[in-house]
Amino acid sequence: MEKLITALTELEKLKYVERGTNVKGRKESTAEHSWSCMMIADILIDFVEEPLDRLKVMEYLLYHDIVEVYAGDAKFNNPDEMKLKYQKEASALAKIKTFIPNQNRFDKITSEYEERKTREAEFAKAVDCLDACIRNINDETKSANDGFTAELIRQKYLPHVSQFDITKELFEHLMLQLRKLNKL
């Protein structure tokens, strides 16, 4: 029971991890980002041209940023943060593995997602990319001066969103919207 309580109370701290985007005058949490990704995936999965396992997608998105409990969020327009990202995340993953129940299942979910071993993992990553675009449309504090250029976003997100027609098309529409709002 103690190990279960430790796992639940430690992972709940994802609610406290601040990301670079804002929600009504405060920083978005990684837990909010994970929920948003799951909502987007649940809506978009019905538009994907091939059958995908919805539960598998949801599992990937539930755990895709769990390492941020200890590693924090890294902004991809900050080279210094990105240099340390993989080392910090590997250390965080090792710590989580010391207390998470059903470690084999957790390992399978996180490695399949990180290595994009399944179409569901590729879809989950595409959704993760779309979430940032959607969040930035709603973030009144974001502007073209934030260092997230269209070229940088395309370089980072296009390989992932291009895996599915619906995510590619939605990405292009979101990019147009961001440009119209002077956020790129």
Rank of each mutant, 00 (worst) to 15 (best):
178 L>Q: 04
39 M>Y: 09
10 E>L: 09
2 E>L: 13
96 I>L: 11
145 N>T: 12
99 F>W: 08
3 K>N: 14
134 I>V: 12
112 E>Y: 06
126 A>P: 04
96 I>P: 02
163 Q>H: 10
1 M>I: 12
62 L>V: 06
48 V>T: 00
140 E>K: 14
23 V>W: 08
80 D>T: 13
90 A>R: 12
155 Q>I: 08
58 M>T: 06
173 H>P: 01
19 R>M: 15
157 Y>A: 08
114 E>N: 15
8 L>C: 10
6 T>Y: 00
18 E>S: 10
91 S>N: 13
158 L>G: 01
91 S>P: 05
117 K>T: 07
104 N>D: 15
96 I>C: 04
109 I>M: 02
8 L>P: 02
17 V>D: 01
101 P>N: 02
143 S>I: 07
149 T>G: 06
124 A>F: 05
69 V>W: 00
139 D>K: 01
140 E>A: 12
24 K>I: 11
73 D>M: 15
95 K>P: 04
61 L>F: 06
68 E>W: 08
179 R>Y: 12
85 K>L: 09
42 D>N: 15
163 Q>W: 02
12 E>S: 13
120 E>F: 00
163 Q>T: 10
16 Y>P: 00
129 C>W: 00
24 K>Q: 13
88 K>A: 10
155 Q>H: 13
78 N>I: 09
95 K>R: 12
42 D>S: 14
102 N>P: 07
127 V>E: 05
136 N>P: 00
48 V>D: 00
48 V>K: 02
28 E>T: 08
98 T>Y: 08
180 K>Y: 13
39 M>Q: 11
13 K>C: 05
123 F>G: 00
74 A>K: 07
161 V>D: 03
142 K>D: 02
180 K>S: 11
129 C>A: 06
18 E>N: 13
166 I>P: 03
95 K>M: 07
90 A>I: 09
58 M>I: 13
132 A>E: 11
